[in-house]
Design a protein around this nucleic acid. Structure first.
Lengths: 239, 239
DNA sequence: CGAAATTTGTTCGTATGTATA
DNA sequence: TTATACATACGAACAAATTTC
């Protein structure tokens, strides 16, 4: 009855495998699975064992428990090709210059420790803060926070609404910038990020911090931190 | 007895909070906690309840279970100050040339699809496969798989046991190599990787795929895939 | 080397609490 | 209010991995 072909280690694991297959094929985002009681009866196991199996799906981000309601399916179609076939590649040097971005936020706010250190300004002093969301084929892939120390650019920048920020700086402020340093790390998606990027809580994100200098005087022009869905994008670098 | 000050919701949560405090203050990486039986008796709860509390710490990546042994503490003091202060930086260009690596594996085996494509050989034909583990201050940070297409190097390479692979190639085979392409992605740690790197299951890993060419004739000399603890290492790139 | 003891992992059962419809 | 469904907690037993003797 159960698929025990690959790793027939435990009962709950076999049930988890079976449930994952069903969730990925015959259930859709927003659906609720049958109740734990029903599923336990169907598989002929104790409800604890069934719960342990569902735990696996919860940890994989495929379903969510809702007390009093049921087990919510989160499956997204691009969850299937876990292998890198369906990934997009992005050149690491193209940070901040994607024509497909939309602006989510544009404010002036005090710089925190990290931003102040990067921009070379005093902690708590004002800086321009933009947030953009980049999509590929309509799917959100990166949320990028940009900070700029030069407040004189604010009247112009607040008009930025979509497209490439670097192209905008060039066009409206005659400002050309180049990358001085790039730092790459990875971490799990937190609540806000998982909502923006439409992914599971704790899904892995690539984090790229870039410092951009003005070409003319080598002053810091922009500091950006991009968070990119690691299941969608791979960074490349040619030497 | 238990710290119920903040979220006194459940027994297991209160125990988890208490254990987390203790793990962060009085235990060190590599220690084993008292047995579940002892802890359950100490807190006056059933072993299931104690296990549910430890589950919380496992999910946070603070401890790891080892069947038959105990509960391993992984405390990383840099877990809370989410700022990257305590991180080590690694230049992205230094892939494969770390003097602190130890060899875990050295075999000849058929290349799978990915490796064959990278090395430019036929799928299923033999290649040299090395696996190394890199540590920083004794803490495992990267596991690296290296594949080399030239089987003539095997008699020499099988003697490689520790240190920098690239230095070894240079010294014993007069082979100098350079990076041609680098691809960077991120994913969650799977079971084997989390054990090797002593991190939580599903902890984020940076994955760097590098293609190295011989300097003399530009032939593919080595393809490597490194998996690095994202909580420990940050990749940097100066331009 | 092997048997026993220890420790974590899995599975059953039962009961009660809490959130939702 | 009642019924349903998930959440927590206790108890018992055995399996599997590791260490110890």
């Amino acid at each position: 009855m159960l698929n025990l072909s690959r790793h027939p280690t435990t009962v709950y694991q076999a049930i988890a495998d079976q449930l994952e297959t069903e969730v990925r094929s015959q259930w859709r985002s927003g659906d609720f699975l049958p109740s734990e009681k029903q599923l336990a009866e169907r598989f002929g196991v104790n409800r604890h064992t069934l719960r342990r199996a569902v735990d696996e799906l919860v940890n994989k981000g495929l379903v969510q428990r809702r007390q009093g309601k049921g087990i919510l399916v989160l499956t997204r179609p691009w969850d299937y090709p876990l292998h890198a076939q369906a990934r997009f590649s992005q050149n690491l040097m193209e940070q901040g210059s994607h024509p497909t971005s939309e602006r989510l936020l544009a404010v002036i706010r005090p710089a925190n420790t990290e931003v102040a250190a990067a921009l070379g300004i005093e902690e708590g002093s004002d800086a321009i803060h933009l947030r953009t969301l980049r999509r590929v084929d309509g799917v959100p892939v990166s949320v990028i926070n940009h900070w700029l120390p030069n407040l004189e650019h604010w009247p112009t920048l607040r008009a930025f609404s979509q497209g490439s920020l670097h192209a905008f700086l060039q066009q409206h402020l005659s400002l050309t910038v180049s990358r001085a340093q790039t730092r790459i790390s990875a971490r799990r998606a937190q609540a806000k990020e998982s909502k923006l990027l439409e992914i599971a809580l704790h899904a892995p994100l690539l984090c790229v911090r870039t410092l951009n200098l003005r070409d003319d005087n080598q002053q810091v022009a922009e500091y950006s931190v991009s968070l990119t869905r690691a299941d969608m994008i791979e960074l490349t670098l040619e030497h």
